[in-house]
Design a protein around this nucleic acid. Structure first.
Lengths: 198, 198
DNA sequence: CAGTTTGCATACGGCTCGTATGTGAGTCGC
DNA sequence: GCGACTCACATACGAGCCGTATGCAAACTG
């Protein structure tokens, strides 16, 4: 394929800009981050940015996409590492909670993302995370562990609960102490979908 | 108290500015809303704004506070209208979901608010909503309907789930059809905290 | 009724974004 | 192997917005 010197360099500048943006957006927030400063930090100008990403929100979208992809991959990996399906579901929930503790994730994906890119439930990567949860749910129902129910609705609420738990933890004074509380409450709520033992 | 012509007028301009901001922020979003346009729409200038609210985010905070107060009052009222405690909890959850369907609430409180005012779990009004849920939970535990558990953690996750459900509904193509699904999943999850019948 | 306070308007500076234009290195046809 | 073309990126410019400093007139005070 040979890619060519041209495209190769371009991919490198894209990567540099995204990396710089990840840092700047996380530190100052999207609105307060100056594109001049951001590009200068990696030895470029706004010209490169507008050529590669269209506009400022285009760069944000690229950054969010990258972070989201990382998260989805990690969640899937963690889920597959567990043997029991139910344990996998709980582990995925816990993984979401822990990942959302990352300040970068919080600021960029959870706070600025929705404000400047629109509702997150439309984002492709979010749907990937959701799909992972839905898969596990489906298996759990086939398996009899969980009573038949609205898979999508349940998956969305579970993810939402986990997400909110993460925000709470991050804002708390003692995150280390809050995390197990959130985990516990999450698992407690989740038992609501378990099949009643006769 | 006599308030005085001065303070009376000032309260009026504050109200006018908040009302205009509510409209502008909901339509264009906080970042894209021009303070010049916004103030001119009610026959004022930015001078009035900076005198009354300090800066742009100060106005946003005032708007969010007003909307949140409305929401908390409504949720409380709906909860008290029900007789059973469990029914009250479910009704409050449903109320949150329905209120978050309001585009104004979505855009200003759920999307722009966190981005420009910081984490919502710090907002006074959010704590009010949470307090309402926690009260009901406490009563339910004393009552035996619900097993003892971490009240705050559970309340936060319940509210988070409801909130996320609302976002999902609003983004869906057929909100009318999605609402009952979200409600059902919410109630299903909530049963996780019910005491096991011996 | 004179002096002070103050709610709001006006004027200004600085920063930011997006576009329009320039340029030099890489690429392709012959 | 060389000239023309492409295109990634830099530079230059205009417009808009925010926050502050200043001005003014109406309302309060004694």
């Amino acid at each position: 394929m040979a890619t060519g010197r041209r495209a190769e360099k371009m991919e490198e500048t894209r990567a540099k800009l995204i990396a710089a943006a990840r840092k700047a957006f996380a530190e100052k927030g999207f609105a307060a981050a100056s594109m001049d400063d951001l590009t200068a930090a990696v030895g470029l100008t706004r010209g490169a940015l507008y050529h590669n990403f269209g506009d400022k929100t285009g760069l944000l979208a690229a950054v969010v996409h990258q972070i989201d992809a990382d998260m989805a991959a990690r969640a899937r990996e963690i889920g597959q590492r567990k043997d029991g399906l139910w344990e996998a579901l709980m582990a995925e929930g816990a993984a979401y909670i822990e990942m959302a503790l990352n300040p970068e994730v919080q600021r960029i994906v959870l706070r600025d993302g929705p404000a400047f890119l629109g509702d997150p439930s439309q984002w492709p990567s979010q749907n990937a995370c959701l799909a992972a949860t839905m898969e596990v749910l489906e298996a759990l129902i086939a398996d009899g562990t969980v009573e038949p129910l609205d898979i999508e609705a349940t998956a969305r609420l579970l993810n939402g609960a986990a997400l909110n738990a993460a925000l709470w933890i991050a804002a708390s004074e003692d995150p280390e102490a809050t995390l197990p509380r959130a985990r516990g409450a999450f698992e407690r709520l989740a038992t609501g979908i378990l099949a009643r033992k006769p």
